[in-house]
């Protein structure tokens, strides 16, 4: 055991990447690491969201708290968030959230003067910082951009008015869901499927067909030429055990064997649009590293070093 290192070097292979969607493989690590990454992506990557609303005039049908809540949920472009300060530990402004380092101010003025209902949308929010603006979904949604006018905040009829000042701050999803940059983060173990060819050959074509159809997702198929059962998409397997149950019902247990590869994961990340999905993954790794650094540098770890010896050094990346 002397000098043995348990350190592994996880690898990432990107399969598919769009602005708000990324699919990648994470290899050579275990579930704890994969789940840590998922959790950090969901609730610890900072973004910017409206946190403080000062309502000057509100004669709309929605009450002040309702509008404030809706404003808070509007996604704001947050590329800047990683370099911003949390308003609670901002030195420049004593944490009251009024300076350029920790906050962005928005203004909204809308009054309906016509008989037609006026939609107040996220486009009406005027930002003090051109890098932090409400996310524009018009091109990605595939609608006609002239029709798509952002996220509706409230609708006004003739004579109604909404005037407010809002302060957006940096925050994390742990504090409030509005700061969560991820819509969906999920991973699954990469399955490994072995077909017992000898046993499979003992089936009739109808039985084979029944077996293939027993899986709700298209994992297996029958080769039209050789009439052999082949795996077409092993990642479509959802660990539902349907095919195993079918094999058992046919009296052929062991027809297929399916294992989950314990150290390979397939991640699917969808961003809310505030940052690019790829950036979300990178930021999450950065934050995970920072968190591990905090553990490494804390005094408790040094103490634990004596206790764990070799393992302690390993924990600190030795």
């Amino acid at each position: 055991m002397d000098g043995a290192s348990y350190q592994r070097f996880p690898k990432i292979r990107i399969r598919e990447m769009k602005d708000d969607y990324v699919k990648f493989e994470l290899r050579d690590t275990d579930a704890s690491m994969a789940n840590a990454l998922r959790r950090v992506m969901l609730v610890e990557v900072p973004t910017i969201a409206i946190d403080l609303v000062e309502i000057e005039v509100n004669s709309s049908v929605l009450n002040d708290e309702f509008i404030a809540h809706r404003l808070g949920l509007i996604p704001l472009t947050s590329e800047r968030a990683m370099n911003m300060r949390f308003s609670r530990d901002c030195d420049a402004c004593d944490g009251d959230g009024q300076c350029e380092f920790c906050s962005v101010e928005f203004h909204l003025r809308a009054k309906c003067m016509t008989d037609q209902t006026l939609d107040v949308t996220s486009k009406d929010l005027i930002s003090s910082d051109h890098t932090v603006i409400p996310v524009d979904f018009s091109d990605s949604a595939g609608f006609d951009s002239s029709e798509q006018r952002g996220i509706i905040i409230v609708k006004l009829r003739r004579g109604q008015e909404l005037r407010l000042r809002a302060i957006a701050r940096k925050g994390i999803g742990k504090d409030h869901a509005k700061w969560s940059p991820a819509a969906t983060v999920t991973f699954m173990y990469e399955p490994e499927i072995h077909i017992n060819e000898d046993l499979m050959e003992s089936l009739t074509l109808d039985e084979k067909r029944g077996f293939v159809e027993s899986s709700p997702t298209k994992v297996f198929d029958i080769d039209p030429n050789t009439h052999q059962v082949v795996v077409v998409d092993r990642e479509a397997y959802t660990y539902d055990d349907e095919v195993l149950k079918k094999a058992e019902a046919m009296g052929k247990p062991g027809l297929v064997e399916i294992y989950a590869k314990e150290d390979n994961f397939i991640f699917t990340v969808e961003s809310t649009g505030v940052i690019k999905a790829s950036q979300l993954v990178l930021n999450a790794i950065e934050i995970l590293k920072q968190k591990l650094d905090a553990v490494r540098l804390s005094e408790d770890t040094v103490e634990a070093d004596d206790q764990f010896g070799e393992l302690g050094a390993h924990m600190r990346g030795g």
Binding site: R39, L42, E270
Partner: peptide, 14 residues
């Protein structure tokens, strides 16, 4: 219960 601590679906992430 916090969202991250909730069980999630491997295929859809729900």
């Amino acid at each position: 219960w916090p969202d991250v601590d909730m069980p999630f679906s491997g295929t859809t992430g729900m």
